[in-house]
Simulated scan of single mutants.
Amino acid sequence: MRFMVMVKATKDSEAGVMPTQEDFAAMGAFNEELIQAGVMEAGEGLHPSARGVRVVFSGKDRYVLDGPFAATNELVAGFWIWKCASLQDAIAWVKKCPNPMRTDSEIEIRQIFSAEDFGEALTPELRAQEERQRQEIQSRAG
């Protein structure tokens, strides 16, 4: 199973407060442990929402909302993509994580859909297309 593990934003992260050298070292050690265990597939931090936008879809119309966005506790400050045997395994890894913020913080774990989750709606042709796209992405990242 694959999971997106999201570090929720805080007032500090939204204000652009950067991690300390000690914070980077602790998170680097944790990431190294994830990599050595074959869990971590990707992980990045995100700039504050003040530097982001949202594209809103309404029928055929699209419009752009500039950040910053309200409800800081609903924003994402960073993420990982992990491969774990179960949600319980992902929870166990998060419990080992150093606090990603200098204040109280939250990490949200969400399972990523796999092709099997979509049943008959994802036809063999669409599955083949998706697989070709994944291979193209991997070859470009290469």
Rank of each mutant, 00 (worst) to 15 (best):
L75K: 08
A90L: 03
N31Q: 12
P100M: 06
E136N: 10
G16D: 12
S105V: 13
T72S: 04
G45K: 10
G28I: 14
S58A: 14
G78W: 08
D12H: 12
Q21D: 13
E106L: 12
Q36K: 15
G45I: 10
W82P: 00
Q21I: 09
M6H: 06
D61P: 14
Q88H: 09
A37F: 00
N31D: 15
A71N: 01
L122K: 01
M1N: 05
E120G: 04
E131N: 07
E106M: 11
P124W: 04
K8P: 03
L87R: 15
E14P: 04
Q88F: 07
V64C: 04
W93K: 01
L75S: 08
Q36L: 13
Q135T: 05
A29Q: 12
L122N: 04
V7W: 02
G28V: 14
R51C: 01
A128D: 10
E131Q: 14
I112A: 13
S13N: 09
T123Q: 09
E116D: 15
A37M: 04
A25D: 14
W80R: 06
E136G: 07
L34Y: 04
A26V: 01
A141K: 10
Q138W: 03
F24N: 03
P68Y: 11
L122S: 02
P98A: 08
E136H: 11
A141I: 11
Q21F: 09
P100G: 05
R51P: 00
A92G: 02
E108P: 06
T10I: 10
V55Q: 00
V53F: 00
A92M: 00
M101K: 09
A121W: 02
E125T: 08
E108D: 11
S105K: 12
F30S: 07
M40L: 12
S58K: 15
K11A: 13
P19F: 05
I137K: 15
F69T: 03
V64D: 00
G45P: 05
V64T: 11
A15Y: 02
T20Y: 08
P19V: 08
A70H: 05
A42K: 05
P100V: 01
K60Y: 07
E116F: 04
F57C: 10
S139H: 06
M40Q: 11
A9Q: 01
G52T: 00
R62M: 13
M27E: 08
T123E: 13
L34V: 02
R54M: 02
G52I: 01
R51A: 12
Q88E: 15
K8R: 14
A9R: 01
L65Y: 03
R102C: 08
A128K: 13
D61L: 14
L87A: 11
L122Y: 09
D104I: 10
G78H: 07
V5W: 01
Q21T: 12
L46Q: 05
F118P: 04
T20N: 09
T72F: 01
D61E: 15
F3L: 04
F30M: 02
A71G: 00
F30G: 06
C97R: 05
G59P: 13
Q21E: 14
A42I: 01
M101E: 07
V55W: 00
G78E: 09
E33I: 00
A128R: 07
V39M: 08
E125L: 09
N31H: 11
R54F: 05
Q111F: 02
D23A: 14
P19Y: 04
R102I: 09
